[in-house]
Design a protein around this nucleic acid. Structure first.
Lengths: 234, 234
DNA sequence: CGGCCAGTTGAGTGTGGTCAATCGTTGTGG
DNA sequence: CCACAACGATTGACCACACTCAACTGGCCG
């Protein structure tokens, strides 16, 4: 299975990992990890905290971000149920992680994961596949940040959410946005004003509806897709 | 060793992999992989080509990039000796890879790598560590692309090269740039004119020297480092 | 010498940022 | 129950940084 599965968009890799863990742990007679609840805006961990646990999102959503000394922020990932946060190769966390909505997490001690990975090659493979999927998402986002217009970025973001919801078997025309405009702006390398203006533009042109700020209804998926790669269609 | 080594900047992970492979291959009585020479501007592989080999850069440098339908390009990584390209979870390559200078590559069949990874857990771990290091670089670059000014991006790029050369035990004050301004622009999400103007600005202020376009001499490393995170110092 | 290509520099423009006012929702306290 | 504060979102006016278009330079090779 190594390096032969589909890319991130189509896979609940966290689930594979946790299934692997569950099996491994039950083989040793132990229970699976503990759980933790966090409120919106609460941090799961900070950069340079000792890396004690790997977390699987069970409910809600969490953003992973980097900060510059002057406060500029770049969100490098939004994580939803089934996703893992806290993986890395250092003794400390490498990013900050903050809940963008109330969330529940499954917590797995790093030491346990490492021990299990030694024993169970399929867990190693699942971790590698998960890392490769994250890398693929990060590089897709590099294209968005480096080369797309503001409108294209907003459309790309909505489509990313559509695809994510699709893999989870959820409605694809009703997009849930469990984060603020500030979070979206910090993910897209824009300001909140620009994000807001472009949401309004998509609403004006009838491509989406905005019943309230946390929910988007897609009215014209084809237009949304074409605008994610060439916004001069508008 | 899993997930406990230092991050990408300090590790020749490709070497770990290839050592692992070499050992594994010699254990089966076979030789290590074949080699391939490519000239500057020649492609190593294209997106959606069948993913037959994983390559280790032996000499020279290669860029990995994504394209938009209208031709806009985003380079997602520059790879130097010791780096690996062609890893992934699909049956096809996920990116384009083009030599930015004449280069030599060691070629390892994907099937061989996968078989070895099954047998040798330390190879799996090295691959995972390599993927995590790549992810860490990609996310650092997301911060650069999303939140830094043109001058900050150019300084960040030079510092990235300094750090890379440092880990390879090379001179840190004499930066080698084995790629064109166009390549640098497509990596930094800028135009060639903007890259060129900011090189000139750094030269004017005495922070660097530009004996020719492929070589940078760092005159003031502290200034370069501070400008990578707040260009208003100038 | 001339053609070609990469790089540099200049002038003008436009997209997205900044600053500011307003709106809408939620929640709290009188 | 209403008033008001607090916060997030939206909209507008203006501005600046990076892009576009264009001219020019320098190095390399035929």
């Amino acid at each position: 299975m190594l390096m032969q599965t589909q890319t991130g968009r189509n896979e609940p890799l966290g689930t594979i990992l946790v299934n692997g863990m569950g099996n491994g742990l039950s083989a040793t007679g132990k229970r699976e990890g503990t759980t933790r609840s966090v409120r919106a805006k609460e941090h799961v961990f900070y950069e340079d905290d000792p890396r004690t646990h790997i977390f699987e999102i069970a409910e809600g959503s969490v953003c992973v971000y980097k900060l510059m000394p002057d406060g500029r922020r770049q969100i490098v990932a939004f994580c939803y149920p089934g996703d893992l946060i806290g993986m890395g190769t250092r003794e400390e966390y490498f990013y900050n992680a903050e809940a963008t909505s109330d969330a529940k997490l499954n917590c797995y001690p790093v030491a346990t994961i490492e021990r299990l990975a030694e024993q169970r090659p399929e867990l190693s493979h699942a971790l590698l596949a998960f890392a490769m999927a994250e890398l693929s998402l990060a590089r897709e986002q590099m294209l968005t940040l480096g080369r797309k217009s503001a409108l294209e970025r907003v459309c790309s973001f909505l489509l990313e959410r559509v695809r994510k919801q699709h893999t989870r078997g959820e409605d694809v025309l009703r997009i849930d946005l469990p984060m603020t405009r500030t979070d979206i702006a910090d993910y897209l390398g824009l300001t909140i004003e620009t994000v807001s203006r472009n949401f309004s533009k998509l609403k004006m042109t009838g491509i989406i509806d905005l019943p309230h700020s946390g929910e988007v209804i897609v009215r014209d998926m084809d237009a949304l897709e074409s605008m994610a790669e060439s916004s001069d269609a508008i």
